[in-house]
């Protein structure tokens, strides 16, 4: 069995008196699409953010692509460049056009020349379906378009792993679909993806594995079919009945 691309071992994280991550251990295989679900405050976003070190952990070990994040000597920026992240609030750079949003980090982190970065930007905007918006500023784009630019921006770094932190939660219902299609497309292309999401349709269609978290712990890991048809724990059953009945 190959070495997992992400290995998380006995991770604990405290925010003051809140135990945000309580002894979390998990492996993610290369090319796997993993969906993390759970009620708000369950630690799922925090877990995602520890993987590119936006949150530090209090104890435990996180190894990404063979590099331990928890060692002091690790060059965090080098690891981050391999891990793309998509945020709930898009976080596009408002003073830059869509194209510039995608080219900036390529040039200053990956040291690509302007022409090469530009070509990548055009390809990716094509791929996310908005090539005509290259010269628009984020303020001129709809939420769904902004999120697709944000995905393109992360992909431009040629990441090995993509993290999605509730990528559709800030979107109007009719724009959710356009973002999910891009994500589905990405999943089918073999990208390793970790998605925190409430979109059960996406989880069913794309995920190989679903992790259910509550109160900082992983309560259940299961296949989509297993989780939706026969959840192992009562807590999972309750959560699913709450969100699926809506």
């Amino acid at each position: 069995m190959p070495e997992p691309i992400i290995r998380i071992r006995n991770v604990h994280k405290w925010f003051g008196k809140t135990h945000a991550l309580d002894d979390v251990s998990m492996d993610v295989e290369q090319g796997e699409v993993l969906v993390i679900i759970g009620p708000s405050g369950s630690g799922k976003s925090t877990l995602l953010r520890t993987i590119n070190h936006l949150e530090t952990v209090n104890s435990g070990e996180i190894v990404v692509d063979g590099i331990p994040l928890t060692h002091k000597s690790t060059d965090i920026n080098a690891v981050r460049a391999e891990v793309g992240m998509v945020f709930q609030q898009f976080n596009l750079f408002p003073h830059l056009t869509a194209r510039q949003n995608i080219t900036l980090a390529q040039r200053i982190v990956r040291k690509r020349n302007a022409a090469e970065a530009d070509r990548t930007a055009s390809e990716l905007l094509e791929r996310v379906g908005i090539p005509e918006k290259a010269d628009s500023y984020p303020g001129q784009l709809s939420g769904g378009q902004q999120q697709r630019v944000a995905i393109a921006r992360a992909l431009a770094m040629d990441p090995k792993i993509m993290l999605f932190d509730e990528p559709t939660s800030a979107l109007d219902p009719e724009m959710i679909k356009e973002v999910l299609e891009v994500m589905l497309d990405l999943a089918q292309s073999g990208m390793t993806m970790l998605c925190v999401t409430h979109e059960m349709g996406f989880a069913r269609a794309a995920a190989r594995r679903i992790v259910f978290m509550d109160e900082g712990k992983i309560v259940e890991e299961n296949t989509p079919e297993g989780l939706f048809s026969a959840p192992k724990s009562d807590r999972t059953k309750l959560f699913l009945s709450n969100i699926l009945d809506r």
């Binding site: 590119n52 460049a81 980090a105």
Partner: peptide, 9 residues
């Protein structure tokens, strides 16, 4: 956060 997640220092 977005800048740092892209590997910028």
């Amino acid at each position: 956060e977005a800048s740092r997640s892209l590997g910028m220092n």
